[in-house]
Amino acid sequence: MVKIVEKRQLTPITKLYRVYAPLIAKAARAGQFVIVRVREGGERIPLTITDYDRDSGLLTIVVQEVGATTRRLGELQQGEEILDMVGPLGEAPDIPSGGHIVGVGGGYGSAALLCLMRELKDRGENTTIIMGAREKDLLILSDELNEICDHVEICTDDGSAGFKGFVTERLQQMIDGGPPGPPDYVIAIGPMAMMRAVEKTTRAAGIANAASLDPLMIDGTGMCGGCRVTVGGETRFACVDGPFFDAHEVDFDEAVSRSKMYVKQEQKAAACQRSAAGAA
């Protein structure tokens, strides 16, 4: 059981939790993730570590409600407990020093970039984050990221804040020499479609690009093989070999297809959850 010390509503469907998980907070490194289970009979789902504080033993996670389990998690309040949490899982990414490092975060992906960008900043890197959302109200943690990164580039689909357009369009402007300058290394975290689009952009420009993959997984220790992704023609497990991979080597078509494996069942589970809520 892991106690929720603080809950913040970032957007109508995105919540930030600070939980007391001293062992995980002590061992965590930027870019790693945890697996949580919310109730008996519930799924195990991976969540990226947004931040950690070794002294207080607090771990920050951000949850976007997309399925039955994340919705259930979103209902938990400050003072309540998360049934199971295990981690830190996966490997921290190995990001080369020097040059202009650009993080591209879509939706909840911006949260996943938070402690990674701070670690890079502490290392003395020149950092920029491009964060995208549909509209202004869906942008998350922009104040926190503003403190950490040298440049914060905001993109919204409707132009309600920052640049009007997709993160990839803003990225292309930078590659073409627009401020704050062309990237030497790009880290993409967000929805699979966004990471794929970022990869296309960086590939055309010949820029190194890491992507953090979050396929379906159960144990997170390499035991089930459900999170397998094809990288450079080889089968790799995102849980133990990842979550970061060279985006140019990732078979995104396959990864997207595998991420949709249980769409039907997820709809059924969601309907079941709604009718249960209705009954209550």
């Binding site: 039955a68 389990t69 159960i218 069942q265 589970a269 079941c272």
Partner: peptide
């Protein structure tokens, strides 16, 4: 472990 045979009461799916 995840009792997928009891889906959707248990929430882990299996195809």
């Amino acid at each position: 472990l995840m009792q997928a045979f009891d889906f959707p009461r248990s929430e882990t799916p299996l195809s």
